[in-house]
């Protein structure tokens, strides 16, 4: 015999289904709207404008009415930020998981605080650091690609540290002790056993952090991104970026064509982040065992 659920239970179940379907509907509307409006603009002209793609890709000719400079800007920004953040985050994560004993554990509090600081405040920090250095040390320094990358690196640093630390700490004790029992030093254990074992956790953390760098707008708004700068020429120059372009278009588009480009840029950024996100999930499931065999 089946007991009929009570009214209160049934209401709760109904509400849960309502929420679930509601969220899915919202998701479908957001994605559907973007694709419906942006799909048609996904053509080579969206990226290269009137410039021949090959000429643009070889940096022989400037692209004026396409997304190419913004894409290259975001790409250089992300690469630079991750070049700064990954070694730092990995080293700090290794320290937290493998060396840190006793009161040094409190360092974790500061990573949590940093993780909670709003990105606009980190951007503001980048800006004030630039002002400070400009006044006292390098008169040539203005908000630029390098400053943005540094600020973005600070933004994702806590995620990298935490994911590295967690991945290392999740390794069971039997595995953790096997190499030291054979005479391995702590450093050998870290590089020969522990890091390879936690590669999937660490690399999915890196992929997620990359996505975060690619999508953040608030940090770069304060540290050097501009609406039109062409291909970034130097680390100390201003640059364009996809997320800022999207914001800029939404606030002041001059023509239907520009608006259409904005939708195209939104679809591209969504696609890039989705790709990184999916890669992070896939990596978490694969990769692990490949390393030792090579």
């Amino acid at each position: 015999m089946v007991r009929a659920p009570r009214l209160r239970d049934r209401a709760l179940i109904a509400f849960s289904w309502f929420s679930g379907l509601g969220l899915l509907a919202i998701f479908a509307v957001v994605i559907g709207f973007l694709l419906a409006r942006g799909w048609s603009s996904l053509r080579p002209e969206l990226i290269f404008g009137d410039t021949p793609p090959v000429q643009a890709l070889l940096f022989r000719q400037q692209v004026f009415d396409g997304l190419f400079p913004a894409i290259i800007g975001t790409l250089s920004l992300v690469l630079l930020a991750m070049t700064i953040a990954v070694p730092l985050g990995l080293a700090a994560g290794i320290y937290m998981a493998e060396y840190c004993r006793g009161s040094a554990r409190r360092l974790g509090l500061f990573f949590d605080i940093l993780a909670g600081v709003p990105s606009i405040v980190i951007g503001l920090f980048g800006l004030s650091l630039t002002i400070f250095l400009h006044r006292h040390f390098f008169g040539r320094l203005y908000p630029c690609l390098l400053v943005s990358a540094l600020a973005l690196a600070f933004l994702v640093l806590p995620y990298l540290i935490r994911s590295t630390q967690t991945a290392l700490e999740e390794i069971p004790r039997t595995v953790r002790l096997s190499a030291p029992a054979l005479g391995a030093s702590r450093l050998q254990n870290i590089f020969l056993v522990l890091l390879p074992r936690s590669l999937k956790g660490i690399s999915s953390g890196i992929l997620l952090a990359t996505g975060r760098c690619a999508e953040d707008t608030a940090v770069i708004m304060l540290t050097g991104v501009v609406a039109s700068a062409g291909i970034p020429r130097s680390l100390l120059g201003s640059y364009e970026a996809l997320p800022f372009y999207i914001y800029y278009i939404s606030s002041q588009y001059g023509s239907r064509q520009e608006l259409q480009n904005g939708f195209g840029a939104a679809v591209i950024l969504l696609f890039v982040c989705a790709l990184l996100f999916t890669a992070a999930l896939v990596v978490r499931h694969r990769l692990a065992k490949r390393f030792f065999h090579r």
């Binding site: 990573f111 920090f125 450093l187």
Partner: peptide, 29 residues
């Protein structure tokens, strides 16, 4: 402590200090 440990510790300390530096800059400016 071996050099490697110092290096890792330096990275952790630097990363942790960023959250303090942000506060410091806000207050000073």
């Amino acid at each position: 402590a071996p050099a490697a440990e110092k290096l890792f510790f330096g990275a952790a300390l630097f990363s942790a200090s960023i959250s303090l530096f942000i506060l410091l800059f806000m207050v000073v400016l």
